[in-house]
Design a protein around this nucleic acid. Structure first.
Lengths: 269, 269
DNA sequence: CTTCCGTGGTTCATTATTATCACCGGCGGT
DNA sequence: ACCGCCGGTGATAATAATGAACCACGGAAG
């Protein structure tokens, strides 16, 4: 984080679907950078087309440049187009909100969402950069990601987002091992109050996780039955998605997932 | 261009649909930066998720971060979703390839394309950052853009891309005045050999151009009839698009477009 | 097998860039 | 008129970027 470009790029992280437009002072406050610094950096970002300044309020917002970049990536390596149908299927099967996230540098980026059509549903604020350790999506991805990323994450600052957030490194490591053994991750209100998340990893061609797909439900609604339905659906969809993006399911995960599915089959109901 | 962030951002411009993956030395060569510098910058960009390095070849490609950013922008300010149907309509009406570009900092970013279904058609390399002065899209946008952008562009280095490219500032200024008077821009092989482009501007709420929509045809196929068809269709579609993005058509353009349409009506055929 | 050239990646002293702070003009509420 | 906050600016002190040299590797050619 000491390099100037890194600081400049944190400015981009300040924009989300919640706050698509941000002012200069606000950016400075959020990032802890000096106003002048932010101003100069934003001018540069605007020059590159990554942000633009429109309207009388002089607020900044993301610029057309990001559309171009996304287009280039999606054209040469389509993923959102592959994830979306899987999420639609998940949402209709489970009746809950499904979303997909990709490992994006040292964090997790939510790239696709399909909200359920229930009256009471989890409506997630997509577009935010999510930490690994507070979300089921993050834990699922991290458990099967490059070991170096796992270590770097565990040895970074792990802030709590709710009263339920696990921040203890030893406990997190244990949780990751459980995820690795079961093939799926769960988060009971670790990232947001009243949200229960379940996630499974999706893989790259090299057999390491590229991201994850997840289903989020209101915590009070979670039942063993629903839980089982969600996990089974996730495992099945994830396999398809991994295949469609040209990924390889590693043996470790394949075994873990099979074990979990088998254990459900034995249970009554 | 002297700031380090600007240099780092030029690295992102090296990725296009043509070359979605680039190596380290290649990036250094293209940008004129030192290998070590590029490596450090790419590491930072990768940390932010804007690029990623996959596969044994260690090539860099755009990362999931750009998907997130595009999603955020598109959710709060949908434009590609608005441009696309207009382009589809243009392509079917004219039988030629249509595309939309937005002013992205000090250049033009192509964000949407609809190729015609003809056997011989202009197949454009989208995703590239286009200069203003070589393309019809660029001239259409520039003629109605903020004066400061126009001046800055005209006083920058204007390199030629084909033998037909106009690089003389005085002549370009004259062309821009013609565009302002007629409401549309034409480029006869100024950006690419054998490509004839016609474009009209699209506007922001403040009455300045946000970008343009254009139709590109093989130069040899262009006829007065086709030209008229294209221009009329463009003007009509552009008005709709401007309205749909919440933009305002300035009086100057409205008059110019009306004049052009009227002049065609008077003509035989 | 050796040589050569091209990768990607790293190091570190030199140097140029960047952050900081106080300041400015403008706007809106009190 | 005042106050606070906004976006934006400029000179100086402090920091971060630079780039040549270097390493290890891999493939092609001699």
């Amino acid at each position: 984080m000491s390099t100037t470009v890194a600081k400049a790029l944190t400015l981009l992280d300040q924009f989300s679907e919640d706050t698509p437009e941000v002012g200069l002072s606000d950016l400075a406050r959020r990032t802890g950078l000096d106003k002048a610094t932010v101003h100069r950096m934003m001018s540069v970002l605007a020059d590159a087309g990554l942000v633009e300044q429109r309207g009388a309020a002089r607020l900044y917002r993301l610029g057309p440049g990001v559309l171009r970049l996304a287009r280039v990536r999606e054209k040469s390596f389509p993923v959102t187009a592959i994830f979306q149908p899987a999420l639609d299927s998940l949402a209709s099967k489970t009746g809950e909100t499904a979303h997909a996230s990709l490992i994006s540098g040292r964090a997790l980026a939510t790239i696709d969402v399909c909200e359920s059509n229930r009256s009471s549903r989890v409506s997630l604020v997509a577009g935010e950069v999510l930490p690994f350790h507070t979300t089921a999506s993050g834990m699922a991805a991290l458990a099967f990601a490059y070991p170096e990323l796992r270590e770097r994450t565990l040895s970074s600052s792990l802030s709590a987002k709710t009263a339920h957030t696990v921040t203890d490194v030893k406990l997190l490591r244990q949780r990751l091992e459980e995820v690795a053994a079961s093939g799926f991750a769960e988060s009971d209100q670790g990232n947001e109050e009243d949200v229960y998340g379940i996630a499974v990893p999706v893989f790259y061609a090299d057999g390491f996780a590229s991201g994850s797909i997840a289903v989020a439900t209101p915590a009070h609604r979670m039942t063993p039955d629903l839980r089982q339905t969600i996990i089974c659906a996730l495992i099945r969809e994830a396999e398809k998605v991994t295949f469609n993006v040209g990924g390889t399911v590693p043996a470790s995960y394949r075994n873990a997932a099979a074990r979990s599915l088998a254990s459900f089959a034995k249970m009554p109901g």
